[in-house]
């Protein structure tokens, strides 16, 4: 009986497992295999030659290949950290504001917040590149009205990456606000009523009820925000081309330059593998941290 059950379960699972295997696992394994090869993306796989850890040695080495990769890895880490640090608190703040049922126009506000997420990145990039224009840009003109001198935004290696982060936050915060609202709806109102009767003020209710019960939602939001941030590509390709001085050269854009423009498939694959490992480590560390907090 059990044998028949296992057989039928296997048959039913086979299509999904096969699809996942073909379209997810095989490309991943292929990328890992290519990372140990010297291979031009314009030639068949059969022409790849094994170089062991040579590609990894090169991307962490002292030459321009290594220097550019390490800069791109660092830029991606900074971009990701800043995006998550800004998006998550803002999404909770906006979520709390919008979730107040008694506030008039709450639905309209939710729609406005979410609408930025629906705007195509090409339109966002076009508009923001003009907003950030150093001389005639509206942002600098607004700053001028309050006596602040013009900022270089995308034109300085010190501010270009942060400017791209702000653009990302503007576009993504609406989506994460919706997630925060979904989390808030899961918190029973009886808990707040009981806390009010016990004399807890708003700040205490937020600290001891809202935040702890939003933890799972925030974990999910953080994982999605990290994955989205690590995959950033369009604003860099459309606005800065990785410059100035490589300050916005993030890994996805750099891998495209190395793997496709220069056809260095082995090096590009080694970089992709490092990106994958970094992402797995980050997300696993985040889960471990939250699980430890839960068990405490």
């Amino acid at each position: 009986m059990a044998k028949a059950f296992r057989a039928s379960a296997g048959i039913m699972l086979a299509p999904a497992v096969t699809l996942i295997g073909v379209f997810v696992l095989v490309p991943m394994l292929l990328t890992v295999w290519l990372s140990f090869q010297d291979w031009s993306t314009q030639t068949p796989f059969s022409e790849a030659s094994f170089v062991g850890l040579g590609n990894f040695h090169e991307i962490f080495g002292p030459t321009s290949v290594g220097r550019d990769f390490k800069t791109a890895l660092l830029n991606t880490a900074i971009y990701t950290a800043l995006s998550v640090v800004l998006i998550l608190p803002l999404s909770v703040v906006f979520g709390l504001l919008v979730y107040q049922r008694q506030v008039a126009g709450g639905t309209a506000l939710r729609t406005v917040l979410f609408s930025t997420y629906m705007v195509p990145m090409i339109a966002v990039a076009l508009v923001w590149s003009k907003l950030y224009a150093p001389s005639e840009g509206p942002l600098n003109q607004l700053l001028g009205l309050i006596g602040i001198s013009p900022q270089p935004w995308l034109s300085s290696p010190r501010s270009a990456l942060v400017s791209i982060v702000l653009l990302n936050v503007w576009q993504q915060v609406g989506y994460f606000t919706v997630l925060a609202i979904a989390g808030l709806t899961q918190i029973p109102s009886s808990l707040y009523e009981a806390a009010t009767l016990d004399g807890a003020n708003g700040r205490e209710q937020f600290r001891f009820i809202t935040l702890p019960l939003l933890r799972r939602t925030l974990l999910f939001s953080a994982v999605i925000a990290i994955i989205n941030a690590v995959q950033v590509f369009e604003p860099v390709a459309l606005i800065t081309q990785g410059g100035p001085v490589g300050s916005t050269n993030v890994l996805t854009y750099h891998i495209r330059r190395v793997g496709i423009e220069r056809a260095q498939g082995g090096l590009g694959s080694a970089m992709a593998v490092m990106l994958m490992i970094s992402l797995i480590v980050c997300v696993s560390a985040l889960f471990a941290f939250v699980n430890r907090k839960d068990s405490e």
Binding site: L154, S155, L238, I239, Q241
Partner: peptide, 12 residues
Amino acid sequence: AMATADANTTGP
């Protein structure tokens, strides 16, 4: 800071 180009070889 006045030297940046964009993907279309235009810009500031």
